[in-house]
Simulated scan of single mutants.
Amino acid sequence: MADLPTLAEVAAAAGVSPATASRVLTGSVRVTTSTRRQVHDAMSRLGYVRRRAPRGSAGRRAEQIIAAVVCEHSPRLFTEPFYARLLSACEEVLTTHGVPMVVMTATPATASIAAPPLVAGAVDGVLLIGARARHPLAVTLAASGVPVRCAGRPPDGIDLPFVDMDNRDGGRQAAEHLLLNNRKHIATIAGPPTLPAARDRLEGFRQTLRDAGVLDMPVAYGDFTHASGAHAMQWLLQRAPHLDAVFAASDVMAAGAMQTLRRAGRKVPDDVAVIGYDDAPVARHTSPTLTTVRQPVEEMATLAARLLLMTLADGDNPKGNPVLPTELVVRESA
């Protein structure tokens, strides 16, 4: 068997010094994007990242390991129900195949710490979750040759395979339901505009209203937390005091909005209809219970994990980026 390539050979193939190649591996910010890409391309060509010694050979890791990387601050990982549902489903698939899963967080500020072990062979593949626009780790992984599958569409301009949910159609369904119930003064609490899923929900909702002749829709932005939903609802009531419907891009934000409406003396749904998004457990425990758009979180996670395992087995990404359907669940709030 041929010897595994050295870092010096990678550097020579990339046309850079060994010190520069080493800085790329350690995630140093003192390397240009083009140089980083040259080094990752050379690593990929020579098999520096992906080549594994045969099972049982001395000094090399025999087992496969998958890293699930959540692009959020760690407190969100432990408080947001979406991540618990997604990671549990991923781990169930991987465990069935005898593959352990490690969980990491990586914000833009911590990407330089997260990147080195991921691209240098400490793991065999990456499930990337919730990457927003210009996230440096998404850029690095796209250039690295490491097997990756995104749970959720990656940011624009990042070429990574993914599994997504039809967030745009989820927004359309919410808008159509409000229009069919003769709501005239409609507002929305959108998620972070840099997150593809949040942007798709807003665009699907807004375009459906525009097609129906509703052109002036107030938009407030939140970060999927209860507090942000409550504050956004407060801002909307000041901006549009006669509103009679609101669509929130998450159930947790919708619950926060309902709290603000209750304090303002507005009855749901008599005065203001409220629709959420996720069909998270909180949707069945609000008063009134929450009409929401159900997204198949577990199904998306399961499919992403299986497709990543197929990539590890075959060396090639399965063709296509599946997009799963969403579904409006009508309860009492709208």
Results as ranks from 00 to 15, higher is better:
173 Q>N: 12
154 P>H: 05
193 P>A: 10
269 P>H: 04
186 I>C: 05
261 L>K: 02
156 D>V: 12
177 H>R: 15
253 M>S: 01
168 R>Y: 14
209 L>P: 00
208 T>H: 04
175 A>R: 13
242 H>N: 15
237 L>W: 07
153 R>I: 05
171 G>P: 06
162 F>S: 02
236 L>K: 07
149 R>I: 00
226 H>G: 13
251 D>I: 08
156 D>N: 08
252 V>A: 14
145 G>S: 02
196 P>F: 04
191 G>S: 06
219 V>G: 05
185 H>R: 12
252 V>F: 00
240 A>Y: 09
248 A>F: 00
157 G>A: 04
214 V>N: 12
169 D>S: 12
168 R>E: 14
263 R>E: 14
213 G>K: 04
227 A>E: 10
197 A>S: 13
168 R>T: 15
211 D>S: 11
247 F>S: 01
266 R>Q: 02
189 I>M: 13
266 R>L: 04
210 R>W: 02
189 I>K: 09
264 A>R: 04
226 H>F: 13
148 V>S: 03
271 D>A: 03
168 R>V: 15
183 R>E: 05
230 A>T: 11
246 V>T: 03
234 Q>H: 12
238 Q>D: 08
222 G>A: 14
150 C>S: 04
244 D>W: 07
198 A>N: 02
182 N>I: 14
238 Q>Y: 09
233 M>P: 10
172 R>E: 08
260 T>V: 14
186 I>N: 02
232 A>F: 05
203 E>G: 08
221 Y>D: 13
262 R>A: 11
181 N>F: 09
211 D>H: 06
247 F>C: 06
154 P>W: 01
255 A>C: 15
162 F>T: 08
230 A>C: 12
207 Q>L: 02
233 M>H: 06
233 M>D: 06
172 R>A: 05
235 W>A: 15
268 V>R: 05
266 R>C: 06
154 P>Q: 10
166 D>K: 12
262 R>S: 15
250 S>M: 02
194 T>R: 11
205 F>E: 00
148 V>G: 00
237 L>C: 03
257 A>L: 11
185 H>D: 08
153 R>H: 11
236 L>W: 03
150 C>A: 04
206 R>K: 07
190 A>D: 00
261 L>I: 03
185 H>Q: 10
229 G>T: 02
256 G>W: 12
254 A>P: 01
237 L>Y: 09
172 R>I: 14
149 R>F: 00
203 E>Q: 12
179 L>N: 12
147 P>G: 00
209 L>G: 03
251 D>W: 03
152 G>H: 09
188 T>S: 09
257 A>Q: 01
155 P>L: 03
184 K>M: 14
151 A>V: 09
244 D>H: 11
238 Q>E: 07
203 E>T: 06
192 P>K: 05
157 G>V: 03
244 D>E: 13
200 D>M: 15
243 L>T: 11
265 G>A: 02
217 M>W: 07
232 A>W: 01
226 H>E: 05
205 F>Y: 06
252 V>R: 09
271 D>V: 12
158 I>C: 02
193 P>E: 14
150 C>W: 03
199 R>V: 06
253 M>N: 01
176 E>R: 13
227 A>I: 09
159 D>F: 02
153 R>V: 04
216 D>S: 08
151 A>L: 11
218 P>H: 09
162 F>G: 07
219 V>R: 07
165 M>Q: 14
